[in-house]
């Protein structure tokens, strides 16, 4: 079974404390999730689900909700 986006967040940022239900959860929600951390997170999402974001998507996808919506449009549930 594919992991959820929140599982990937925990994998990448094991020390971070966050609320997976928070609808605004995104870049800046905790210290490690800065722009570099976010780029690494998007690469991990890509590798996990076997897809690739465009440069534009990388700039636009800032919250977990946005990423989830993007994946849903590709038929991927996360």
């Amino acid at each position: 079974m594919k992991p959820k986006l929140t599982d990937l967040l925990r994998q990448l940022f094991p020390a971070a404390v966050f609320d997976g239900q928070d609808p605004t959860l995104g870049v800046g929600s905790f210290a490690e999730w800065d722009s570099l951390g976010h780029f690494n997170f998007l690469l991990l999402v890509e590798e996990t689900f076997g897809l690739q974001f465009s440069v534009d998507e990388i700039t636009e996808l800032k919250t977990l909700a946005q990423i989830r919506e993007n994946l849903a449009a590709r038929g991927v549930e996360a």
């Binding site: 990448l12 490690e32 570099l36 780029f39 690494n40 690469l43 991990l44």
Partner: peptide
Amino acid sequence: TSFLLPGNP
């Protein structure tokens, strides 16, 4: 000489 993505898994 290029960025190497510190923190990447």
